[in-house]
Every structure is written in C-alpha cells, then in structure tokens.
Design a protein around this nucleic acid. Structure first.
Length: 492
RNA sequence: GCCGCGUUCGUCUAGGGGUCUAGGACGCCGGCCUCUCACGCCGGUAACACGGGUUCAAAUCCCGUACGCGGUACCA
C-alpha cells in the first residue's frame, strides 16, 4: 500500500478529448501500480463555459476506457465534495488568508481598465502587457489605494478580484518528473487572478487548494500547464504547504505536427473526442494501449498491452517530453491486435449483436463459423458486418475489376461443372471442396487458379476474403451451387 | 515580442560519452506461403535539425542558431 494520490481534473466545458483520456490514463496507471488512489475532480469554476452533459460524458468515457475512479463526484470519498463549485467556502477562506498575509491583494480594475492599460502599454516589443509587479502600481488595487478607500469600496460591494502578489527578483524552480529541473524568473510571472469578480476562484487557486486538501501527491497534467506552474508553486509557499510532485506530459499533436485542435483534426479526418472513437467501434483497450504508448514506452520492445499490463509496466520517468503526433494507422493496427486476442465466443456474441443491429437475420452457430474465419484478418469489429455480407446474402453484383481480371471465356462452364460436382458430392469439409475443385481442373488439364478465382468471384462477388475452401464450407453446397449458376448466367 | 519546453527514420520510439556501419514498431515497398487475402513470416526503404566547443572519442555533455509546440485571459 502506498500513499500515492493522483487526480484527473477536467473542466466540464466539453466532451472528453483524446488528450484528456491520456492524461487520465497516466494518472490511473500510476495510482494502480502503486496501490494509490485515482481521484476525479470536476473543475467547474467557469460558469460561462459550463456544458450541461459534459460531466456525464467524461464519466462515460472513463468507464468505457476501463479507468475506474476511486473517489469522485459520482462515487464519493473522504475528501469531497469533488466538484469545485461545491467547495467555494474553502477557496474563500484561503483567499482571505492570502490577503491577510500580504501574498495577495484586492484589485478593483474593470475589464475596461485592463483593456486601457494593455492598449497604453502595448508595443511591438511587448504585445501583451501583463498585470504584474511593473504595472500594478498604476492600477486601482489595495496596493495603490489607501486602506480607507479599499475598505469603502469593499463595503460598497464594488466588483473586484483578488490577485496573487508576485514578488520580483526571485527564481522559482521545481523538479518536474518528466522534465527535471524547470525554472522561471518571478519577474515574468503575472499577478494572477485568484478569485474572479463573481466570487469564483480561478483554476490556479482552486487547483492548489484542492490538491492540498485532497492529499494529492502527484500532479500529472498536460504541458499547457507548465507555464502556470510557478504561480502554483508560489501559492503553495504562500499558504505554507508542500507542493506535490509535478509531471507535465507532452502534448498530442495532429498527424501533421500542428495543434490537435478540434477544427484542424476534423479537417484531417481524425476524431478528437473519446466518444467518437467509441461510436466508431474502436476497442477501448486498443485506444488505451495506443494512447499509453503515445509519449511513454516500457523500455523494452513490448507494444501490445492490456490495462493490467500497462499498470505494471508504467513509470513516469519513461514518459517523453517532446510533443507527439497522432497516427490513425497505428491505432488501427493496435485495434487489430486487440481484436485478435478476444476469445472467439466473446467476439461471436459481439458479431451477433452488430449483425442484428444491421438487420441481418442469422444464428449464433453460423456466426461463430464466420468469426472463426474473419477474426485474424480484420482491424475493426465493424468489419465483421461490413466485410461479411456474402456470408448472409447472395452477391447482387460482382467486382468489375475482378471480372476483368479473373472471369475468362471458359469460366462459366468451369463454374457450372463445379456446381454440379458440389451438388453430387455434397462436400462438408474445406478439404472436400478442394478435392472436388481440383478433380475438375486436373481432368481438364487447366491450372487450379482458372477455376478458383471465378469461384470466389461468383460466390462472394469480390476477389478477397478468407481462405476460399473454408469459406465455401461455411456456405454449404446448396448455396455455393446456386450462386455459381447465377454468376455463370450473369457473367457468361 | 517575452517566458518556458522541445528537436533520433514519414510517424511512435530505444539509446544518455566508446558495444551505433544507430535497434524496435506503424506505414510504405519487395518476397515467401498460397487459389485469393485485410493474417502470418522474411527482407528492404528511411533518422541523430544546424553551427561551434569539451574530449583520445559525442546521437549522447556545454554554448549558440534555426525550427516546432505551449503560455502570455476575471478559460481551463
């Protein structure tokens, strides 16, 4: 047993993103591997961006991926509540402490005041002026106003925020578990708003307060947070708390190296929401496996893992620090690998469900035989429906390229002869079908391929599929003969 | 602009001073097996961003440059 406590802390401003799932996964893996706790905390401090069903989507996506949450808004826990909107008192209390100790101050500047300041100070060398140690002296805050004025404004209920007072001239250094030592000069850290004028805390305050009170030992999050970490470190210090271990994960980039923004990704045909992968029929375990390897490696040449395997192989110090590009082809490969490891009877059940949903009328025994033939050559479970049509219905068309390439002058006659032979011999095994076919080609002194190709085309309508004789054996002599006669008549 | 983080095959990566004429995986190409094939097997293609240093020796350490990404909100 260890005391490792990690959290995944999404904000319910949208559905769970693929990058979010990876962050959750790394947290989960560390928790499981160390016997620690995996906590879900909903960071809903931005009321303007709140999306009603986002939390449900996040929960659903984590459950689909198999990441069981130990503590969270839906399962409870000892250090709840697990939604920040329900913890306001805590933030207010610590904000007051910070004011009292002088680590934070009140600021009364309106959004217009801020715009004016930025407009005034903006220059080519400094396109985005900050509210910081250099500028706060010119603003309306408890540092520039007299105590009486401040009290008056406060008493009058004047809208205001609370800002962190960042002292210049220090270097803030911390050790990141994936990047080693990182340091920032405090002069370039702005006086971050801690409490908004609506009374809600910003991420920065809430995150630090909650991580402390929830006993979080490792903060594992995306690299987009690296730049704000000095503010968090300063907050921990000001509050007299120890900071947890920080670990900033490399960002997931689009297949072309740019940002994996929703727009860019859609343009490139790559889904960004976990839900989309689920709907597209990906194996959850394959997505998890792929995501785990996107930025981390086990240090040996293993690649295919189930969740349990990942738990034991994972380690934070084998997480890379460079951004990684998302590759759908590799995901597809992982999907195929995981599909092959599913027990045949389980996959058969799934195939049955998929086929039924697609309106195919069939039975379990027959589907089991189809699955046996298809399992090791598909990359998506859905292929069990989309690539198996001829197992359930006679082909209504024949692949034109296949006709051109494989259907010769003597094909109709050969195929008819095979149909006759099948009806006479009533073969059962794949071998029986093969013997019957070779009898014909041998006695006519033509290559087996002369008949094999037209038979596949006539029976399935396409030029590829599982082993021909295995396929015929599943279909049975009656169906085969019927289809062959029809093909002969249709194609001449 | 400034700050931070990065940079090994197209992609994910191993490697962290000599064992590197740089290994694996996906993709791609070729072959095998075969009657076909989306499986499998074998083989091939392909990379240390650039420039300086340190060292007997650098993909590996240091500095600089370039490029990429992130941050620079009363968003997270």
């Amino acid at each position: 047993m260890s005391n490792v406590r990690v959290r995944f802390a999404p904000s319910p401003t949208g559905y769970l993103h693929i990058g979010g799932l990876r962050t959750a996964l790394y947290n989960y893996l560390l928790a499981r591997q160390t016997g620690g706790a995996f906590i879900l905390r909903i960071e809903d401090t931005d009321r303007s961006r709140f999306v009603e069903d986002a939390e449900a989507d996040i929960l659903g996506a984590l459950a689909w991926a198999g990441l069981e949450v130990d503590e969270g808004p839906h399962v409870g826990g000892d250090v709840g509540p697990y939604r920040q909107s329900e913890r306001s008192d805590l933030y207010a209390k610590h904000a007051a402490d910070l004011i009292k100790s002088g680590a934070a101050y009140h600021a009364f500047d309106t959004p217009e005041d801020l715009d004016a300041m930025r407009e005034r100070l903006k220059s080519p060398e400094n396109p985005t002026p900050r509210y910081d140690c250099h500028t706060r002296g010119d603003m309306r805050n408890s540092l520039t106003l007299s105590p009486d004025e401040v009290q008056q404004l406060l008493d009058a209920g004047t809208p205001h925020v609370i800002r962190l007072k960042v002292e210049p001239g220090q270097t803030v250094t911390f050790t990141d578990a994936v990047r080693d030592e990182v340091s920032f000069a405090s002069d370039v850290v702005d006086d971050q708003i801690l409490v908004k004028s609506d009374g809600m805390p910003t991420y920065h305050l809430a995150n630090v307060v909650d991580d402390h009170h929830m006993g979080i030992t490792h903060v594992i999050r995306g690299e987009e947070w690296l730049s704000s970490t000095p503010k968090h470190i300063l907050l921990y210090r000001a509050l007299g708390w120890d900071a947890p271990t920080m670990a900033h994960l490399p960002l997931i980039l689009s297949p072309t190296g740019g940002k994996l923004s929703k727009r860019a990704a859609e343009r490139q045909g790559i889904p960004v929401l976990v839900k989309q992968y689920q709907d597209a029929g990906y194996e959850a375990e394959a997505l998890v496996n792929y995501l785990a390897l996107l930025g981390w490696n086990p240090g040996d040449e293993r690649e295919v893992f189930d969740l349990e395997g990942l738990c034991s192989a994972f380690s934070l110090d084998r997480v890379g620090s460079a951004g990684v590009q998302f590759d759908m082809d590799k995901l597809a490969w992982f999907n195929g690998q995981h599909l092959r490891s599913i027990p045949a009877d389980v996959l058969t059940d799934r195939a049955l469900g998929l086929l039924k949903a697609a309106g195919v009328d069939t039975d379990a025994e027959y589907v089991a035989r189809v699955v046996e033939l298809m399992q090791d050559r598909i990359s998506m479970a859905d292929d069990l429906v989309s690539a198996t049509g001829y197992f359930f219905e006679d082909p209504v068309a024949y692949d034109p390229t296949g006709i051109k390439k494989r259907w010769k002058d003597d094909s109709a006659e050969l195929v008819m002869a095979y149909a006759d032979a099948l009806e006479a011999a009533l073969p059962a095994s794949a071998e029986d079908y093969e013997v019957a076919l070779r009898d014909i080609t041998t006695s006519r002194e033509v290559g087996a391929g002369r008949l094999i190709h037209p038979v596949r085309l006539g029976v399935s309508g396409v030029t590829f599929g599982p082993g021909l004789f295995e396929m015929l054996a599943v279909l049975g002599p009656d169906v085969c003969a019927r289809r062959l006669r029809k093909a002969a008549a249709t194609l001449g």
